[in-house]
């Protein structure tokens, strides 16, 4: 265990009733603050996620949903709100 907080953010197992709930839990873990109630609220413009929290969130999403986000999908806009992440995961 070399990385303290990063380990817990990337590798936590989530059991939630819905994908949106899981995403809220992931965002709260990465940001260290409550996720927005409004699924359409920008995670970046609100200041909740900064440029280093974004790759942490993408890694956490990959782990939680057992997917691999390809480089071609590494566009911050796809991860800018709970609704956009939900839509992206639906497309996978």
């Amino acid at each position: 265990m070399f990385f303290g907080a990063l380990d817990s953010v990337w590798e936590t197992e989530y059991v939630a009733e819905s994908r949106e709930e899981t995403l809220r839990a992931l965002i709260e873990k990465v940001a260290g603050k409550p996720a927005p109630e409004d699924a359409d609220e920008s995670l970046f413009e609100s200041g909740l996620l900064d440029s280093f929290a974004l790759p942490d969130l993408v890694s956490a999403i990959e782990h939680a949903f057992s997917i691999k986000v390809p480089d071609a999908d590494l566009n911050p806009r796809k991860f800018d709100s709970i609704a956009r992440i939900d839509a992206y995961l639906s497309s996978k």
Binding site: L54, P55, D71
Partner: peptide, 11 residues
């Protein structure tokens, strides 16, 4: 910064 760090941290 968002895009640079996202891609650098993966690539």
């Amino acid at each position: 910064g968002l895009n640079v760090i996202l891609h650098a941290s993966r690539k």
